[in-house]
């Protein structure tokens, strides 16, 4: 049935070409501004803070201490992460002891991990880059760092290397060669989960993270 539906649909679509002129107006006139590195960091921070993300710009070596401080303030009891992520070893060596959450690597398939995952306080992920134009993180989950790390825990912490912040989405797509190697799931994340469905009143954390904390590493 489906294949005949397909044939009939395509027959109509092809026929439509004979009745309508193929004129199409020209596009390609708009581009968001290109910025230098300092401007990119500044704009990304500003844009992300506008939608209530917490952004800290700091030297790369300092992120574990900053993370520990943030976790302590939140009294987080569990933290999930990708065991083989680039920061996994550092995380294991620095985030431990009194007042630190239990580290729970996302090491199994979601079917086995799901119930535990839905109870975890914090998820931490790497990012492939950022976009200054609209205050966005580029997150391509991998076998090492699965998709739900950035969605299910109450707080999402993202590590962003300052060198990987692009000016615009178009630039990021071009430079990262999205068209040639789209992953299973490419995500652009621009803040904590939010809604304004009741009386247009903005509220955060309706389904996903209530907080997004971005550590920009210089």
């Amino acid at each position: 049935m489906s294949s005949t539906a397909r044939d009939r649909i395509f027959a109509r679509l092809h026929a439509a070409r004979t009745t309508v002129s193929p004129y199409v107006p020209q596009g390609g006139t708009w581009q968001a501004p290109m910025l230098d590195k300092a401007q990119r960091i500044e704009l990304l921070k500003k844009r992300m803070e506008t939608v209530r993300s917490e952004v800290h710009v700091l030297p790369e070596a300092e992120w574990p201490a900053k993370l520990a401080e943030l976790l302590k303030a939140r009294e987080a009891t569990t933290l999930t992460y990708g065991h083989d992520a680039w920061f996994g070893g550092t995380l294991r060596s620095k985030i431990k002891g009194k007042g630190m959450p239990k580290l729970v690597p996302y090491g199994e398939n979601v079917e086995a991990f799901r119930d535990e995952l839905f109870g975890i306080d914090v998820g931490i992920t790497s990012t492939l880059g950022g976009i200054a134009e609209n205050g966005t993180l580029i997150v391509w989950p991998t076998p090492q760092e699965p998709r739900l790390l950035s969605l299910v825990p109450t707080v999402h912490v993202a590590l962003l290397k300052a060198d990987t912040i692009y000016s615009t989405l178009a630039e990021a797509m071009r430079e990262m060669r999205w068209a040639e190697n789209m992953p299973t799931n490419a995500l652009l994340i621009s803040g904590p989960s939010k809604t304004a469905d009741i009386e247009m009143t903005l509220a955060f954390g309706v389904h996903g993270p209530k907080e997004l904390i971005v550590l920009v590493l210089e």
Binding site: N134, T136, I189, S190, S193, G208
Partner: peptide, 10 residues
């Protein structure tokens, strides 16, 4: 300016 998530599924 942007939504929280742009989810590209391939």
């Amino acid at each position: 300016l942007v939504t929280t998530y742009v989810n590209c599924i391939t």
